[in-house]
Design a binder for these strands. Sequence first.
DNA 1: TAGATTGTTAATCGATTAACAATC
DNA 2: TAGATTGTTAATCGATTAACAATC
Lengths: 229, 229
Amino acid sequence: MRYDPTAGGVGLQPVRPEADPGLSERLSLGVAARLSRYLQVLTQAKKMGRETISSQELADYTHVNSTQIRRDLSGFGKFGKRGVGYNVDSLVSQIRKILRTTGKHNIALFGAGNLGQAIAGSDIFADHGFRVVAVFDKDPKKVGRRISDSLTVRRYDDLERVIREEDVVVGVLAVPTEAAQEVADDLVAAGVKIIFNYSDALLQVPPEVTVHTSSPAVDLLYALYFYLT
Amino acid sequence: MRYDPTAGGVGLQPVRPEADPGLSERLSLGVAARLSRYLQVLTQAKKMGRETISSQELADYTHVNSTQIRRDLSGFGKFGKRGVGYNVDSLVSQIRKILRTTGKHNIALFGAGNLGQAIAGSDIFADHGFRVVAVFDKDPKKVGRRISDSLTVRRYDDLERVIREEDVVVGVLAVPTEAAQEVADDLVAAGVKIIFNYSDALLQVPPEVTVHTSSPAVDLLYALYFYLT
DNA sequence: TAGATTGTTAATCGATTAACAATC
DNA sequence: TAGATTGTTAATCGATTAACAATC
């Protein structure tokens, strides 16, 4: 592909030193990253009513080489039909099975400002089995406010209890940069292992916790370089 | 690294077949992607008052291997000091020089809803030399509304003129999925070559136009896989 | 049948890692 | 000096690509 945002492919590491030759072998980071991206495009294609899709079309949308895509998929079975392509529905469920993300996963959202409301109101997460089950804000004036049909802003002090009761696995930070580290610390203390950071804070977390920082400017810089040269 | 969002590294392609051994050689996609990420961390580290940073710290924040980082940088000069690390300020300007993104670049934002307002109000873009110079919305009720100190929502019909007059190089779509393709078409017609898409639409654009679709759910799915296994 | 697209191989290229001398 | 960290090499592994037979 010409432009790869997850060009994070860039920067992969081995996952475990020991071998596990069975079917239950853990995916490499690269394969898992790419399968996730195929899933996103397939989900959207399904919404648009597409029944089949070719590896070339998937390549156009994901910026992953079409041969690479066919190879990634054929490693798990013969999902395609020659001369036709892949059935969208069936490929979605196959990849979900491979990624073991067929279940529902609960998210807690921090910050009920513009960004928080935008996230709560969108279905970018819902489409992939993630559900925002709680929204927190430190501003007492916002507590109790209705954010969507099913969400009301909660008191920040209830964080630990809510995370336990609602079985939250991911914390999403839509708070000001100055507040991000404190929320991250509280999430770590509450046992959350995945943090999605929309602020530009550099978060300090223990090694067992994964932080993903959203950085649209990085993608723009990258795109711009190839535009300028 | 354990977790690579730009793991887009995943899916890189050769840029040009011909060789160009001079100093003006174009960066490979992987290198450009990684340099962009170093820049983001360095910019934030600078904000936090850090004077030096080691390749190991950069590795922790970017999820790129520290040897890889030292190698990427040493390809352009000896920027570090043994036993000390890299000077943050000087590394920022070196990388900006390499990426040729020292100038200012103008962005037009589409959609003045929650997400659009969040983007206009943040400095994620501003920190990297991008400036939102115009905000558009199709809703007549929003036109004329003040979004920030310097931004007022404009009429969508003025798109072409504004893009020309303001020298806009990037269009950011913070519009509903249904509206995204139409805006993309109009941007392409106006000559914009980089589109940043926050909707989950699968945009159809000519090959010379680069689309980056923000997909937080993809990153979550990926992080979740390694959490579950 | 003809056209399209998968599944797969083989070759190349770049990323990743460990290791360590150089040096601040 | 002692400790830390860069710059660089060499080995390995995975991504990328072209090419094409298989087959829908």
